[in-house]
């Protein structure tokens, strides 16, 4: 019996062995692994960037409180991590200097029970604007005009889908800036009545928020 025959015999001895685990189960298990790894980084090393106009009522407690309670799945791309928490909230961490995949983000938000309209290069808004944005979305660090042009960093946004008024959706518009960074605009919209624009509209207090990630706007 030469080496080739022996090698063939060994290979054939296990040829009928097949993995019995469906790929969906592996992915689900992998999400749990990923979520366990991601929680510490989701609550540390954060630095936002700028805010045009927003008054946010929920501050830091959403991000930190929900993170410690999290045991559910998470989505991650190069540009963002979305972690669903056991209390129904979800935390979105936007990584700087990475292009957002808007289709993936919209799909992942939907899977986490957050109706959202995510666009690249356009932004949708309703007039009149539904109330309650500050109860639905909170940011860390809280944007304020005073932090404008801080060094680029991660922006963490916590969504509270249970606080969304019936018939509303989150609108999320992403714009590439000539400086190389990105501008992300958030607002609450009436799902049956909204207008989209290719330029971000000016916000007034409590209407929404605008973040810059990546390179500072200068």
């Amino acid at each position: 019996m030469n080496d080739y025959d022996l090698s063939t015999m060994v290979r054939e001895s296990v040829a009928d062995i097949h993995s019995a685990t469906p790929v969906a189960q592996i992915i689900s298990q992998g999400r749990a692994v990923r979520a366990r790894r991601r929680i510490p980084s989701a609550v540390t090393g954060l630095a936002v960037i700028t805010a045009a106009a927003a008054v946010l009522g929920l501050g830091l407690s959403g991000a930190f409180g929900s993170a410690s309670a999290h045991r559910a799945g998470a989505f991650e791309t190069a540009a963002f991590t979305l972690v669903k928490h056991a209390n129904g909230t979800a935390t979105l961490t936007i990584h700087p200097n990475e292009l957002l995949d808007t289709a993936a983000l919209q799909s992942d938000l939907h899977q986490d029970g957050i109706p959202a309209l995510v666009n690249s290069g356009s932004f949708c808004f309703s007039d009149p604007k539904p109330a309650g944005f500050a109860q639905v979305v909170s940011f860390y660090p809280m944007p304020s005009p005073q932090v404008r042009n801080t060094p680029p960093g991660q922006a963490t946004i916590t969504f509270h889908p249970a606080a969304m008024p019936a018939g509303t959706e989150l609108s999320f518009g992403v714009f590439q800036l000539s400086s190389g960074g990105q501008q992300a605009d958030f607002a609450l919209i009436d799902a049956t009545s909204y207008t989209c624009t290719s330029s971000p509209p000016p916000f007034s207090s409590r209407d929404g928020v605008e973040l810059l990630t990546g390179s500072p706007a200068g």
Binding site: I17, H18, R31, R34
Partner: peptide, 30 residues
């Protein structure tokens, strides 16, 4: 299948091999 067979030859028990391979693939996805 190939990875399961390789781990099976290494550890000698199919149930154990399946668990180890599943765990490894979950980490790969993560």
């Amino acid at each position: 299948d190939e990875c399961l067979r390789a781990v099976l030859v290494s550890v000698g028990d199919q149930d154990t091999a399946q668990e180890l391979v599943d765990e490894a693939y979950a980490r790969a996805w993560a």
